[in-house]
Simulated scan of single mutants.
Amino acid sequence: MENKYISLVRDNIKNLKPYSSARHEFSGHADIFLDANENPNDHHIYNRYPDPLQTRLKRKISAVKGVKEESIFLGNGSDEAIDILFRIFCEPGKDSVISIEPSYGMYRVAADINNVKIKNVSLTPDFELDVDAILAVEEKSDKILWLCSPNNPSGNTLNPQMILELLDKFPGMIVVDEAYIDFSNEVSMKSFVPERQNLIILQTFSKAWGLAGLRIGMAFAQQWIIEIMNAVKPPYNINSYSQDFVLNQLRKIDDVRKEISKIKQERGRVIERLEELDIVEKIYPSEANFLLIKCKDARNVFKSLQEKGVIVRDRSNVPLCEGCLRVTIGTERENEVFLKEMKILDKQ
């Protein structure tokens, strides 16, 4: 199958000779390792460098996610994958990208760091894609289209048929950030990876899997993309402790599913209680573990909650989110405290 998208890769990246570490050059069993200048004394295995390609962990992720091992990249959070994709496809000071608005702010930060122009295309008032508007601003210099589904901060899942239409019509790479997909009733678009050379899916262990502190993000894409990402990343980007911990967590998938189910149940309960309050003007449909809530005098509500030790996110300054707060679904106890304080504010 002809790959027209390889031409999007920067020339210096195509010609890159990646760093070859000691652990890249040897795989298999050995009793004595004198190749990596490590401290030879046993420090709970942490005196040894980690597997640079996270082989055991990817094997388990492959089984759980239904994605081939060679189509999996692991990064230090999804943010590392985002930055690496900028460095692979975007020439600083020359190329550009497109992002929907509002969406995850790290796309712009990564663009600014890499000196890449970013063009924002507004979602509709219902936070849906405007395919025609995206294609209308597309230029030859646009190398990546960034989409987030379920979207942050709106919480809705983007129409998959519209994404497929963009995959056919947009000439660059399309990244679909599915950080919150485990909370959605919609299925992941990762099943389209084998047939779409310009599709990259991002997922994470930070949300549904409860491992935000370990910083492990995933990218699913065709093998040629993953190979380039592995060439660009630092050799030991995922430490041994994180690899082992995530591997163990993947064996507890039933427990994780129960937690996801509980969070979704709480999401429904919180919505029902908030709908009773006059102070709440609108609750946007959510397929994530948070709600976007339009409130009367949102900034005062935000400050009042903060004074009571309840921290939510003020999104009033974000396009299409005027007067809105983003509220994460917490434990039943945490949600009850939040709802109690909202009821007090509603009576004032």
Rank of each mutant, 00 (worst) to 15 (best):
D51S: 07
D51R: 04
P52L: 03
L53Q: 09
T55S: 13
T55P: 09
R59S: 14
A63I: 12
V64P: 12
K65W: 10
K65G: 10
E69R: 13
I72C: 04
G75F: 05
G75D: 00
G77T: 14
S78T: 15
E80G: 00
E80D: 08
A81R: 06
F86H: 13
I88L: 15
C90A: 07
S96D: 02
S96H: 01
P102E: 06
M106R: 10
Y107G: 03
V109S: 15
A110S: 14
N115I: 07
K117L: 07
K119S: 10
N120M: 11
N120S: 13
L123K: 05
P125M: 02
F127G: 00
F127D: 02
F127Y: 13
E128A: 12
D132M: 04
I134C: 09
L135E: 09
L135V: 05
V137N: 01
E139I: 03
I144V: 14
C148M: 11
S149E: 06
P153T: 04
S154R: 02
G155S: 10
G155R: 12
N159R: 04
P160A: 06
L164D: 08
V175A: 03
E178T: 05
I181N: 01
N185I: 04
E186Q: 12
V187H: 14
S188W: 05
M189W: 06
